[in-house]
Amino acid sequence: MHMPIESKFFDKETIEDTLNDPSQVIPLLQIVQEKNGYIPEKAIEEISEITGVSISNIFSVITFYKQFRLRPPGKYIIRVCDGTACHVNNARMLLDILNDELKLEGTDTTEDGLFTVMPVACLGCCSLAPVIMVNEDTHGKLTPQKLRKIIKDYQRKGKENH
């Protein structure tokens, strides 16, 4: 066993608890994802050093699970529910509108880094379908008009804070 490494991402206790334990790869990734919104390369190196799992194996875990991102997300993460209840209530149209309004052509993040759009399965409030979540705020019973207004509001807010 070697000495705990100097870390940018984890505190000493976490490192001690997870040292040389391959089953801790996912929990460690979750800590990084939670704090940074994505997994920087440096973090992968550290996790490899801590758990003893090879970098390529960690990569294969990251790409397997949807929760992990390898690139930083936008300032506002828009989760568009495409679970069953939202789907039968026209959730696809919301996605089309977002792609159109935010000019997302095949990417998930806007050029100005303001928005990241992610389709997800069920946000847990099906009775409000169709639903989106912008960061921590839920917006339900959406219509195209309401959605466009919400985007405009966040665009304004985002610019003001720039």
């Binding site: 946000l123 847990g124 409030c125 099906c126 009775s127 409000l128 639903v131 839920t138 339900g140």
Partner: peptide, 13 residues
């Protein structure tokens, strides 16, 4: 006694 339903959907609503 007043009780408020605070599951995920209640909170969203």
């Amino acid at each position: 006694k007043i009780t408020v339903g605070m599951a995920t959907c209640g909170i969203s609503a």
